[in-house]
Amino acid sequence: MATKAVCVLKGDGPVQGIINFEQKESNGPVKVWGSIKGLTEGLHGFHVHEFGDNTAGCTSAGPHFNPLSRKHGGPKDEERHVGDLGNVTADKDGVADVSIEDSVISLSGDHCIIGRTLVVHEKADDLGKGGNEESTKTGNAGSRLACGVIGIAQ
């Protein structure tokens, strides 16, 4: 089992970053940390998408990683996509320092995120509470600013 993974985020604009993942036990939580720069100040949706395909930019990554066919939600919700990591918060300089621990994603097994795409979005994720159909699919997080395929790390 891989215990570490990394993702280099890039987009068409100024947004870029490096996100690290570490899972010490196969059924334990995954620590997610790193930094994203070039964002507007505020909240930005942060999700693992189904495919590791960036051939047409971030759009070819498909929908959120959702092997259990659930509705979109927040990272602490029972009803959520596996890939729903909530929001990252950018400061006035456009930098989001990421520090998350998640017990639904994994670096092995059915919820493995390796080979899938991590995406940072234009807007805040409403965590499935926006009151419309799009909220239950995407959290109304808007366009995909930057993305990268999650790969095994040393």
Rank of each mutant, 00 (worst) to 15 (best):
G109S: 10
S69A: 05
P75K: 01
S108F: 15
K24V: 07
N27L: 14
T138I: 04
V8F: 14
E25Q: 05
L127C: 11
V149Y: 04
F21Y: 04
V119M: 10
G52V: 05
E122C: 08
G34M: 00
V30R: 02
D93K: 09
I150L: 01
V119F: 03
L68I: 10
V120Q: 00
G109R: 04
G128Q: 07
P75S: 11
D84W: 03
H111C: 11
L118F: 03
I152G: 08
V98P: 03
I114W: 00
D77L: 13
V149N: 04
H72W: 03
D84S: 10
L39N: 03
G94K: 03
K24M: 10
P63A: 15
G42Y: 00
L85E: 02
A141I: 06
H121T: 15
N54S: 11
K10V: 13
S26M: 06
T136D: 11
R70C: 14
H121L: 13
H44K: 02
P14Q: 12
E41D: 09
H121K: 14
P75R: 11
F51G: 15
A2L: 05
H121Y: 13
K92G: 12
E25F: 07
V88A: 06
H72V: 04
H111P: 07
K31R: 15
G83F: 14
G38C: 02
H121F: 13
N87K: 04
N66I: 06
C147D: 05
G13T: 15
L118Y: 01
D126A: 06
C58E: 15
L43D: 03
Q16N: 12
G139I: 04
F46R: 01
R70Y: 11
V149L: 13
T59Q: 10
P29Q: 14
P14A: 13
V120I: 11
S106Y: 01
A61K: 12
K76G: 14
T59K: 08
W33T: 15
L43N: 04
H64S: 07
H121W: 11
V119I: 09
E41G: 05
G38S: 03
G45R: 07
N54R: 14
A153V: 10
P63T: 12
H44F: 11
V6Y: 12
G83Q: 08
I113R: 01
G11S: 13
D84G: 05
A96E: 03
S35C: 10
W33P: 05
I36F: 00
G142K: 06
E78H: 04
T40A: 11
D12T: 05
T3R: 12
L85C: 00
G130V: 11
P75T: 08
T40W: 03
G109T: 02
C112A: 09
A5G: 07
V6C: 03
I18S: 09
G17V: 07
T40M: 11
V6W: 04
N27C: 10
A61S: 14
G73L: 14
G139N: 15
H64R: 09
H81C: 05
I36T: 00
V95G: 07
G62T: 05
Q23M: 06
L9C: 02
K31V: 09
E79S: 15
E41P: 15
G142C: 10
L43S: 04
G151A: 12
D93M: 10
K31P: 01
E134I: 05
R116I: 04
D110T: 08
E25D: 11
H44Y: 15
G45K: 02
N20V: 05
C7Q: 01
A141W: 06
D97M: 14
G11C: 06
G139Y: 08
L127V: 12
S135M: 07
D97E: 15
N87V: 11
L85A: 00
H111F: 06
D53A: 06
G131C: 03
I114A: 02
R70A: 02
P63Y: 11
R70L: 14
G139C: 14
E133M: 05
G34T: 00
A141S: 12
G73I: 01
E41L: 03
S99A: 11
I113V: 13
G128H: 02
A153R: 12
P14G: 15
I100H: 06
H47A: 04
V48Y: 02
W33Y: 12
D125H: 08
G109M: 01
V82E: 01
N54G: 11
F65H: 06
T89P: 07
T59E: 05
W33L: 10
K129G: 10
E50F: 00
D97A: 11
I19Y: 03
D102Q: 02
A2V: 11
C7T: 06
D93N: 12
T136Y: 02
L68E: 09
S106F: 03
D84E: 09
A61Q: 06
C7E: 04
F21R: 01
N87Y: 13
I114V: 10
N27H: 10
L107V: 01
E50G: 08
H44G: 01
L127I: 05
H47S: 05
K4G: 04
N132A: 13
T59P: 14
E78K: 05
G11E: 06
I19K: 03
N20I: 08
E78P: 04
G130S: 13
C7R: 05
A90H: 01
I152Y: 08
F46S: 01
H121R: 09
G94P: 00
H81R: 05
A56Y: 07
A5P: 03
G94H: 04
S103G: 12
Q23N: 03
C147H: 08
I105V: 08
K129W: 14
V8I: 07
V119H: 01
G109K: 03
L9H: 03
H47G: 06
P67S: 04
C112P: 07
N20W: 13
G130T: 12
G86N: 00
S60I: 12
V8H: 13
D126K: 03
K76R: 13
K129I: 12
K24Y: 10
V82F: 11
T89Q: 04
K31E: 01
C7W: 02
S143G: 11
V149C: 08
G42D: 01
L127W: 15
I150P: 02
F46T: 02
N66L: 04
V88F: 06
G128V: 06
D126T: 06
N27P: 14
G28S: 02
L43G: 08
K4V: 11
L107Q: 01
T138G: 15
G83Y: 15
S143V: 12
D97W: 12
I114C: 04
G38T: 00
G128A: 06
R116F: 03
T138Y: 15
T117M: 13
T40V: 12
G131P: 09
V32G: 02
G38L: 04
A90I: 00
C147I: 14
T3F: 10
P63Q: 06
L145Y: 10
